[in-house]
């Protein structure tokens, strides 16, 4: 499906662009948000947030850097995670907090954290295609093991075994960074 015309319409701020964009991509956003936000009302609100953010930031979308589904998928995931964290904080502290999670305590820790993230993604890149897919589903998109198993046509036990091996491999590769 060619979405370039739809993206152009979004960028040109045409009035019919957003509804069309929503119709085309609502299934994708719902699919990504569902495992992170179990509550239906949360999901509906998150859906609106995602399309609002997409409308606001469509200018930043660069087709050279990836597909629109990958770009929108990232927005949907991040929006859902922020909402989930806000919900958690609300449950713990009372008042809602829409600010993103606090970074490290200082520049040194921030640098260490950034290095750890780089090391993790480098290790993930070294996984084979199937292992990488499994990692992203589990740790990036927060999909439950049962959903992964059903979508990949594997038994629960098989997915757990494969995830165990992925974790073991990452643990071996990242031992110095994540254990130290």
């Amino acid at each position: 499906m060619d979405h370039s015309e739809l993206i152009r319409a979004m960028k040109d701020r045409r009035s019919d662009a957003l509804p069309r964009f929503q119709t085309a991509f609502a299934p994708l956003v719902k699919y990504i948000v569902a495992p992170i936000l179990p509550d239906g009302r949360d999901r509906e609100e998150c859906l609106s947030d995602v399309f609002l953010r997409a409308w606001e930031s469509i200018g930043e979308y660069d087709p050279e850097k990836g597909t629109v589904t990958a770009w929108l998928g990232t927005i949907a995931r991040n929006t859902a995670l922020n909402r989930q964290r806000a919900n958690e904080r609300r449950r713990e502290d009372g008042p809602p907090d829409e600010t993103p999670p606090a970074p490290g305590d200082g520049p040194e820790e921030a640098a260490l954290r950034a290095e750890a993230v780089r090391a993790l993604w480098r290790a993930v890149d070294r996984l084979d295609r199937r292992e990488r897919d499994l990692f992203l589903r589990k740790y990036y998109y927060y999909q439950p093991t049962a959903q992964i198993a059903a979508e990949l046509g594997l038994s629960l036990r098989a997915v757990e075994g494969k995830l165990y091996r992925v974790r073991k491999r990452l643990q071996d590769e990242l031992g110095g960074v994540h254990r130290g």
Binding site: G66, A114, V117, R137, Y141, R167
Partner: peptide
């Protein structure tokens, strides 16, 4: 603990902006 670390690490894309992963 390692699971938590993986979730936390995967929550952020690398700072040098690798392309976003394709959704499943």
């Amino acid at each position: 603990e390692f699971d938590k670390l993986l979730y936390q690490g995967a929550a952020q894309l690398p700072p040098d902006a690798a392309p976003s992963p394709e959704p499943p």
